[in-house]
Amino acid sequence: MAAVRVEEVLAAAEEQEAEKRRSVTVEKELDLEFDLGNLLALDRNPPAAAGLRGAAPGREALLRALARDNTQLLVAQLWELPAERAGGAGGPLVARLPEPAFRLPREKPPPRPRPPTRWEQFARLKGIRRRKRTSLVWDEEAKEWRRRWGYRRAGGDPARAWLAEVPEGADPEEDQFARLRREKRERVARNELNRLRNLARAHRAGTTIPAAPLHPTGHQSREELGHVARVARVSTASLGRFQPRLPKEPAETPSRNAGKKRRFEPLLGNLAAERSRHLELLRDMGSKKPVLDITRAVNKQLRQEEAEAAAAKGKKQSQRGKRSRRQQRTGRNSK
Rank of each mutant, 00 (worst) to 15 (best):
Ala3Glu: 12
Val4His: 13
Arg5Val: 12
Val9Asp: 13
Ala12Val: 11
Lys20Gln: 11
Arg21Trp: 07
Arg21Met: 06
Arg22Leu: 06
Val24Tyr: 15
Val24Met: 13
Lys28Val: 05
Leu32Gly: 02
Glu33Val: 15
Leu40Val: 07
Leu40Gln: 07
Asp43Tyr: 04
Asp43Ala: 11
Asn45Val: 04
Ala48Asp: 14
Ala49His: 14
Leu52Trp: 15
Ala55Asp: 12
Ala55Leu: 10
Gly58His: 14
Glu60Gln: 14
Leu62Met: 15
Leu63Cys: 14
Ala65Tyr: 08
Leu66Ser: 09
Arg68Ile: 05
Thr71Pro: 01
Thr71Trp: 05
Leu81Gln: 03
Ala83Asp: 05
Ala83Thr: 06
Arg85Tyr: 06
Ala89Pro: 03
Ala95Gln: 15
Ala95Asn: 08
Arg96Phe: 01
Pro98Trp: 07
Phe102Trp: 14
Pro105Leu: 09
Pro105Ala: 08
Glu107Gln: 08
Pro110Asn: 08
Pro111Gln: 07
Thr117Met: 10
Arg118Glu: 09
Trp119Met: 15
Gln121Tyr: 02
Phe122Ala: 13
Gly127Ile: 09
Arg129Val: 06
Thr134Cys: 07
Val137Gly: 02
Ala142Gln: 13
Trp145Ala: 10
Trp145His: 09
Arg146Asn: 06
Arg146His: 05
Gly150Asp: 05
Tyr151Val: 13
Arg152Pro: 01
Ala154Trp: 02
Gly155Glu: 03
Pro158Glu: 08
Ala159Ile: 04
Ala170Pro: 04
Glu174Ile: 09
Asp175Lys: 03
Gln176Asp: 08
Leu180Met: 12
Arg182Tyr: 11
Glu183Asp: 15
Glu186Phe: 12
Val188Ile: 14
Arg190Phe: 12
Asn191His: 08
Asn191Pro: 00
Glu192Gln: 06
Leu199Cys: 04
Arg201Ala: 11
His203Lys: 04
Thr207Phe: 02
Thr208Cys: 05
Pro210Met: 03
Ala211Met: 02
Gly218Ile: 13
Ser221Asn: 08
Glu223Asn: 14
Glu224Lys: 13
Val228Trp: 14
Arg230Val: 15
Ala232Asp: 04
Ala232Tyr: 02
Arg233Lys: 13
Arg233Thr: 06
Arg233Phe: 04
Thr236Cys: 14
Phe242Met: 15
Ala251Phe: 01
Glu252Lys: 00
Thr253Asn: 04
Ser255Trp: 01
Asn257Gly: 00
Asn257Phe: 00
Gly259Pro: 02
Arg263Cys: 01
Pro266Leu: 12
Leu268Pro: 00
Leu268Gly: 05
Ala273Leu: 14
Arg275Pro: 00
Leu282Phe: 01
Arg283Pro: 00
Met285Trp: 01
Met285Pro: 00
Pro290Lys: 03
Val291Cys: 00
Leu292His: 01
Asp293Gln: 00
Thr295Ile: 07
Lys300Asp: 13
Lys300Val: 09
Lys300Trp: 12
Glu305Ala: 12
Ala309Ile: 13
Ala311Gln: 06
Lys315Cys: 11
Gln327Tyr: 07
Gln328Ile: 06
Thr330Asp: 07
